[in-house]
Design a protein around this nucleic acid. Structure first.
Lengths: 142, 142
DNA sequence: CTTGCTCCTCTAGCAACTAGAGGATGTAGA
DNA sequence: TCTACATCCTCTAGTTGCTAGAGGAGCAAG
């Protein structure tokens, strides 16, 4: 049985990515070069689409292409030395946890503002304070 | 009492932002133009630094400059119609909640991999599946 | 007063797209 | 079969959000 394949336009629609972006990802090696038709058109399979959707989500979350590349390398080479995979996963995990913490703080603040708004008062906004620097001390400051 | 001020280099060090980036933010209007010395050097005050740190965090979280602009507008114009502020905050909140959900999923998967690694086995990696598209359906698909 | 650091402006480059020109392909109807 | 029209192809150029570097001025210490 021949597996289902999709032209680039439908891949784009399904994954919420623009057509040129897909070609771009292929160009920089994030997405493997898909098979082609007689007429030289790309044909993507389900695995390609899953990978593409993953890339889109990761980019939306603010991961750099290089970070995504290492994340995908966990997937692509499950046989790489455990220590290497561990290091990559550990590093990504720390990053992810920090992001979550900051987003939670921001969420709380936005909710507080919405509550005040609901009660008819104009909120004094403290969004700036919510992301106050607790994690980025890399020098001797006063 | 004259409030404490800081030259651009120290502002950069304190906020974890590069010097040209600060000038860039000023250029695009994210940061108000600070006062200057006789010799034409920028002097930032504590409020500027807080704003700058906020921008850095928000950028790290993957917010676009425009999104940050609207977040800061909540701060800058607390007197804008409540409905407008509410809409902005609500939209940002939805975004933030989605990000958190996705990051949580990714976190779980990375932790699962680290556990397997700890127990000596090579993890089969499912990072791709963890961000499977539950939120981005904008067409009638099969 | 000069050595050396920080600052200034300005221009050019990079990452990650995004849009458009110019042309080939694929498909559906007359 | 012919033609209209969407979709695809490659390639180049533009956009956003920085980042690095040239060339020069300001300032503090010895």
């Amino acid at each position: 049985m021949a597996a289902e394949t999709f032209p680039i336009g439908e891949a784009a629609r399904r994954c919420g990515v623009k057509v040129p972006t897909i070609r771009y990802y292929e160009g920089i090696g994030l997405l493997p070069a898909p098979s082609r038709t007689e007429g030289n058109r790309r044909l993507f399979d389900a695995a390609d689409l899953r990978r593409l959707a993953f890339i889109r989500h990761a980019r939306e979350l603010g991961f750099e292409v290089d970070a995504i590349r290492t994340l995908l390398s966990l997937q692509d080479d499950p046989d790489q030395p455990c220590a290497a995979a561990d290091a990559i996963a550990r590093e990504r995990l720390a990053d992810v946890e920090q992001r979550i913490a900051k987003l939670m703080a921001l969420k709380d603040e936005l909710e507080r503002m919405l509550e005040q708004c609901a009660s008819g008062r104009v909120a004094e906004c403290r969004v700036i304070e919510t992301l106050a620097d607790t994690t980025h001390r890399h020098g001797p400051f006063t």
